[in-house]
Simulated assay, not measured.
Amino acid sequence: MKYDDSTWHFGGEFPEELDERHAGIHIGMFLGWIIRRGLYSELLSDLAQDDILAVQNRLLTGTQFLQRVCDGKLTNEDLNEEANLFAQDYYASDDYIDDYSQAFIDIGPTLYHVTDDNANALKVEDFLDKAFQTWKISRG
């Protein structure tokens, strides 16, 4: 199952002045959180252990990892079982993009203007940690 793909965001309302890598920042920030919380799949670990360590140590952003290792796509094969259940309920339902929109409400003309940096990643990690805890409680 493909949760998101940066190519889905090109064209249409995507701002012409931005580099295409901006189309995947929201995806990469989610994936960066997945990696930093140890919720990635064994397959992903086998493919890119050095890059995973770089993300965990904030030497590589989740977006850079997404482009380098995952070809701009977030799929169920990237996530462990628990993360997939969470992503199906939270990411695929647009709750993630709603929370992302709230976190960056004053960022610029579009959400694609969010910069791929550690300060913004920490904002995302904060609301994802809360959403994940709420999700886990709701599941008993």
Rank of each mutant, 00 (worst) to 15 (best):
T7K: 12
T7Q: 09
H9D: 13
F10L: 13
E13K: 07
E13D: 12
F14N: 00
P15C: 05
E16Q: 14
D19R: 03
E20Y: 10
E20R: 11
R21Y: 11
R21P: 01
H22V: 05
A23C: 01
A23M: 01
H26I: 03
I27T: 08
G28F: 06
M29H: 06
F30A: 01
W33R: 05
I34T: 15
I34H: 02
I34P: 01
I35K: 00
R36H: 05
G38P: 13
Y40K: 06
S41I: 06
S41L: 09
E42N: 15
E42W: 08
E42M: 13
L43Y: 11
L43I: 12
L43S: 11
S45F: 14
S45V: 03
S45A: 13
S45D: 11
D46F: 10
D46C: 08
L47E: 11
A48E: 01
D50E: 14
D50S: 14
D51C: 08
D51Y: 09
I52S: 03
I52K: 00
L53F: 09
A54D: 10
N57A: 15
N57D: 12
L60H: 04
L60A: 04
L60S: 03
T61M: 08
G62I: 00
G62A: 08
T63E: 08
Q64D: 11
Q64E: 15
F65M: 00
L66E: 05
L66C: 02
Q67V: 07
R68Q: 11
C70H: 02
G72E: 06
G72Q: 06
L74F: 02
L74G: 02
T75V: 04
N76Y: 08
E77N: 09
E77W: 09
D78H: 15
D78S: 01
L79I: 02
N80D: 15
A83P: 00
N84C: 14
L85R: 12
L85Q: 13
F86D: 04
A87C: 04
A87W: 03
Q88E: 12
D89W: 07
D89K: 10
Y91E: 10
Y91I: 00
A92F: 10
A92W: 11
A92Q: 13
S93K: 09
S93F: 02
D94Y: 14
D94C: 06
D94H: 11
D95N: 15
D95T: 11
I97F: 11
I97R: 14
I97M: 11
D98I: 15
D98S: 14
Y100K: 05
S101F: 08
Q102I: 09
Q102L: 12
Q102A: 10
F104S: 02
I105D: 12
D106E: 12
I107K: 05
I107E: 13
I107Q: 06
G108S: 03
G108D: 03
G108C: 03
G108P: 08
G108W: 04
P109A: 15
P109F: 10
P109L: 13
P109H: 14
T110M: 05
T110D: 07
T110R: 03
T110H: 06
T110S: 15
L111N: 14
L111W: 01
V114D: 00
D116Y: 04
D117E: 13
N118S: 12
A119G: 11
A119P: 04
A121W: 05
L122V: 15
L122H: 09
K123I: 07
V124E: 07
V124W: 10
E125M: 08
E125W: 05
D126A: 09
L128I: 07
L128D: 04
L128S: 00
